[in-house]
Design a protein around this nucleic acid. Sequence first.
RNA 1: AGUCCUGUAGCUCAGUUGGUUAGAGCGCUACACUGAUAAUGUAGAGGUCCGCAGUUCAAAUCUGCGCAGGACUACCA
Length: 1161
Amino acid sequence: MPIRRCSIGKRSTNPVIFAALLNELMPIHFKQYDELDLPKVADEVLKQWEVEDTFGQSLELRKDAPPFVFYEGPPSANGLPGIHHVMARAIKDIFCRYQTQKGNLVHRKAGWDTHGLPIELGVEKELGITKEDIGTKISIEDYNAACKKAVMRYTDVWNDMTRRIGFWLDLEHPYVTYQTKYIESVWWLLKQLYDKDLLYKGYTIQPYSPAAGTGLSSHELNQPGTYKNVKDTSAVAMFKVKEENASEFLFKDAFGEVFILAWTTTPWTLPSNTALTVGPKLEYVRVKTFNPYTHEPQTVVLAKARLNAYFRSDVEEPMHAIASSVLLGVPQKDAFENYDKNGKLIPWQVLDGEFYGHQLEGITYEQLLPYAQPEQGEAFKVIGGDFVTTEDGTGVVHTAPSFGADDMRVARQHNIGTLTLVDLQGRFTKDMGEFAGKYVKNEYYPEGTAPDKSVDVEISIKLKEMGRAFKVEKYEHNYPHCWRTDKPILYYPLDSWFVRTTAKKDRLIALNKTINWKPESTGTGRFGNWLENLQDWNLSRSRYWGVPLPIWRTKDRDEELCIGSLKQLKEEIAKSVKAGVMKEDPYASFKVDDMSDANYDTVDLHRPFADNIVLVSPGGKPMKRETDLIDVWFDSGSMPYAQLHYPFENEDGLKEKFPADFIAEGVDQTRGWFYTLHAISTLVFDQVAYKAVVSNGLVLDKNGQKMSKRLGNAVDPFKTLDEFGADAVRWYMISNASPWDNLKFDAEGIKEVQRKFFRALFNTYNFFALYANIDKPELGVDVSAARTESDRWILSRLNSLIKLADTNYTEYEPTIAARAIQDFVVEDLSNWYVRLNRRRFWKGEQGNDKNAAFQTLHRCLEVVAMLSAPIAPFFSDRLYRDLAEKSVHLSNWPKHDDALIDTELEERTKLAQSLTTLVLSIRKKEGHRVRQPLQKMMVPVTDAIMRKRLEAIQELVLGEVNVKELVILDANESKLTKKIKPDFKKLGARMGKLMKTVAAAVNAFDQAQIAELEANGTMKLTLDGQEVELLREDVDITAEAIPGLSVASDGPITVALDITLTEPLIEEGLARELVSRIQTLRKETGLEVTDRINLHIQRNGNERFERAVQGHAKHILAETLALTPENELLVTDLPNISPGRHALELDESLSCAVYITPNGR
RNA sequence: AGUCCUGUAGCUCAGUUGGUUAGAGCGCUACACUGAUAAUGUAGAGGUCCGCAGUUCAAAUCUGCGCAGGACUACCA
C-alpha cells in the first residue's frame, strides 16, 4: 500500500505551490501489477466502494453543490435484465458521474414500475386462470396480492446487475409505483387535471371483443397471430344525392338518378352510416351508366383515379360502348341506345367536367338504410377528410362514426351524429327491423347455430334489390382477431376517461422545442410529429392491478367527485358513514397527518378496497367509484412528483428536483415515458419535465438481428460481465457507436477494447510505476523550465483532450469523448510519448529532465483516469488511487489550460511523425534495419514555416530514425523535381465551367512552367479561346523527388535518405546490435532491470567487430548497466565459468562470445 | 399505411460548408522489431460509398423516387 505522508490539502493553481503540494500527495511507492485482469479489478473496486461507501461520500462531498437532476425511468422487475439494460444503465451512469466530477450534486433514486398488463398476464399464466375467472375462481384481492408478489420477483437480480456494471443508484430507497404514498401523489395529479377541466369522460372507438366482452389494448392487438387473412363480403353502396343548390352541378346532363359510390368491407356498418367522406384535394368524376343489378339508368360519382377499378377501358370506342368490369363483356356500338337490360355488357361514359372533393362537401344524400336516426348532430352529408386515399375503394369513405376511429374523428370535426345499431354482444339492436338480434359476424353465434347467410350477405342482397348496390364481391383482407377467443374484433365506441391533452397542444409543442434531444431528430421528428397529431390521452383500463381512478359518481351521473388525497378521502368517508351509506371507515387506522411509512402501510388503495368505498354526494346520493384503472404510463410519468410524495411531503424539495437536467431511456420510450413525463408536467406545471434526453438505440446481436429468447441469440449480461469486466463492456458499448445508433453487440469488440485501450493504459502505468519506484524521482519540484519539446507536446495534447472530452460529455456525446481518450492513450501517450522518452525514465542522472518526464507522465495518467472515469468507473478508480491515493469519483474534473495548448507544436509533431514513418518506410525498402545508423536525411522545404518546424523537431526525428543529420533543402535552389496540383476548391470557385480544362492544363505543366508560376506568382493561360489568370495560391506545388537518392513522400512532405554506409557507421551499427543482443540475454538470464553486471566480450579475430567494441565500449557498458572497466571489456579469454558464458550471433556471418554475471552488491 | 433512424473495405466505424487518388481500427498476407512486448513498425490485398434519376465545372456529401434493415404509431373505407 502506498504510504501517505500528509492529508490532502486544497489545490492551488500557482505552479510552485501546486508542485509542492503534489509532492506531498504523491505516494512514495507505486503499486505494480503482473497482469491485467479487468473483472478482478472491478470486483475489488466494487468491494472497496461498498466498504468505504464511496457513492455516499461522493454525495456528501457535493452536498452544498448545485444540483444536477437525474430521473431514473422505472424498469419493470417482473422480467430479467438483458444486455441492453447494461447499455441503458451505463449511459445514465456516465453523465451522472461526469456531473459529479464537475462539482454538482447528483441524486439518483432507483424506481420500480409495478403495474400493468404484462404483470397481469404473467400471473394469469402462472395461476392457470383467465380474466373471466377473476371475481369467481379467484378474488380480486387475492389476484392483486399475487401480482404484487410477482412484480418484485427479480429485484435482486436487477440490483445485482446494477451494482456489477457500476451504476451508482440509490437502490436502498427506490420509489415503487404500488406504494400508497406513490398512488396518493398520482391521485393528486389527477385531481389537478380534473380541477383544470383536463380530465373528462368521453367515448372513443376501441378494439372490442364482443365474444370476450372486453376492450382490447393495442398491446393485445399486437400479439402474434391476431391479424388473420379472411374473406369478407364487400359492397360498393350507392348513396342517392339530394338535388339542391350545392349539388346542382352534379345533375347537369345527368342520366337517371345521381349516386355517390362508397365501398365497405363491413356491410353491417351501413345502417349506421351518417356521412360520406371525400378527399378535398382528390379529383372526382361523374359516370353515366346502368345499374348492373336493376339495369336502371344512373349517374355515379367516384374518384377519377378509381375509374379503372370499376370500368374497363380496353376498348375501341371509349366514349361509347365499354363494358363494366362488374360484368365482363366486350364493347359494342350504340351501346346506350341498344343496351339490353338482360345483357352483361354495360356501357359507360364519363360526363364532362371533373371536380375536386371539396366541391362535394356539404352535399346531402338520402339515408341508405333508414332504420334509425341519430339523436344529435347533422347526418347524411358529404364531408372532407385527409385520410381518404385512392388506393382502393371509390375514393369516398362510407363513414359510420361508431365503428371506426377515423370515422369518429372526422365526424366530430364536422358535427356529424352517430348511430350505434349494434350492441355489446355484437348483435343488431331492436331498431334494426328484420335484422334485429342477429349477430353482425357469423363467428359470434354459438357453435353450430350460425345462419347460412351472414348479415353482410343479407344486407348486400337487400341493396341489390333496392338498386343501391354497385358491386358486391368477396374480398380478402387482414383483420384483427381477439387473441383470447380467436373471433374477429369490432371497433366499437366505449366509455373512457381522457386527459384533454389536445387543449394544451400548443404548450406541449412549444415546451418540447426547449428540450435538448439526443439525437435531435427524435425530438423534432418522431416526437415532434407525434405532438403535432396529438390525440387526447385515453387513461382508462378495464383491469385489476393498477392505480384506481379516484373518481366517484352517482348512478345518474349528475354528481361526481375527484379525490386528490387520503385526507380528502377520509373526510368523504366520514361524511358517508355519517349519512349511513357506509357502515364504517375501512381506513380508520390511518392518521391523516402522519407521514410515516408505517402509517401509510395500513392503507391499500388498490382494487377491491377502493371499490368498496361508497361516498355520499352533496345531494345525499351514494357515489361509486368509476371502475377503471388508469394507464400505467401515467404512473411512470408521475415519478418526478410521486417519488417525493409531493405535495404531501418535500414541498420545497420539488424545486430542487424538478425539472430533470437529464434523463435517458430507449428510443421505444418516445411515446411512452418521454411523452407521459412531458404531458403531465406541461398540463399540471406548465414546464418541461426534463431539459435533456438521450434516447438510446437497441442492442442487436452481431448480425444485426434483434436479440430474443426464441432465436437463442440473447446475450447474458452476467456472463459477459464475468468474462470481460464492466469497464471493457461499457467502454466497448460507448466507443463503438453513438448511444442512439443501434449497437451490433459482438464480444470480439470487447476483446479488442481490452487489448488496445486498457492494456495500453495498464502498460503505461506499469512502466511509470516500475521506474518511479526504482528512481524515486522528485515529483514535487517545479520542472516547467526543464520540459522538453515532447513533454510540452503531450501536455498540449492532454489539454486539448480535456477540453474536447469536457465539451462532448456536456453535450451528451460520450462516443466522441471515448474515442478521443482512447486515441490519446494508445497513439499519443503510449506509442509516441513513452516510446520516445523511455530512456529519460531509466537512464542518466537524477535531475530536472528526469523529473519533468515523470511529472508529465504522471499528470497524463492521472488526467486520463479522471476523463475516463464516467465510462470505465472501476479501472479508472484503481488507476487514480494508485497515482493519487483517493477515489477518482471524489476528484474534481480537470480544468484545461489554454496556455498549455500549442497547436503549432502539435502540427510540427505531426510532421515529425510523418517524417519518421517515411524514413522507416525507406529503411524497410532499402533493407537497412533501424539499428544501423545512417548519415543523413534530406527534406526539401518550400516555405519558411516548414523550415522552422523542421529545425525544431530535428533532434527528435533523428533520434527516432537513427540518422546523424538532417539537411533542409531549399526547394527553389535544389535540383528537385516538383509536382503541381490544382487546388480544386479555390480554383473551382473562380473557373466554374472551365474547371476541367484548367485542371488538365495545370496537371500537364512542365518544370519550367512550374518555376515560372512560382517566380511570377501569376500566369495567363489561354484555354478554349478564353484567357484565364492562374494564381500561385490556386495550386499546390510540392517537391517530388531528389535525383539519385531514395525518396518517399506523403502528401506535401518528401524525404530523401542517404543510404551510403561508411566504416564508422557500420561499426556503430555493430555496437548497437551487440547491445541489443546483450539486453536480450540479460532478460533471458532473469536479471532485474536494475541489476548491474560484469561484462566481457571475447576477441573473435574480426577486426571490424573488435574496432566496434573498442570504439563504443563506453556506450555498450552504459546501455547494459555493466560495471566492467572500459579496458577490460574486450578480452582474449573469457572466464571459464559456464553460467556466465554465452554465444551471440550478430548476423549470418558474425558471432562472438560474451560473459555476463551479476555484479555482486 | 404514416413518422423517424440506419445503409461507406470481410467486420466495427470516421468522413468538416459539395473539391483532386474516400480514411482508421480489427481481421488477412509478408517482413521487421523485442528491457512497455498477448505490444509495436513497414508494406500489401480488400470499395458499383444500397440503387436510379436530377442539380452542379465537381456528389459518399444536396434534391427527388425507390430498395433493404430497424424502431415507434396506426390499421382504415
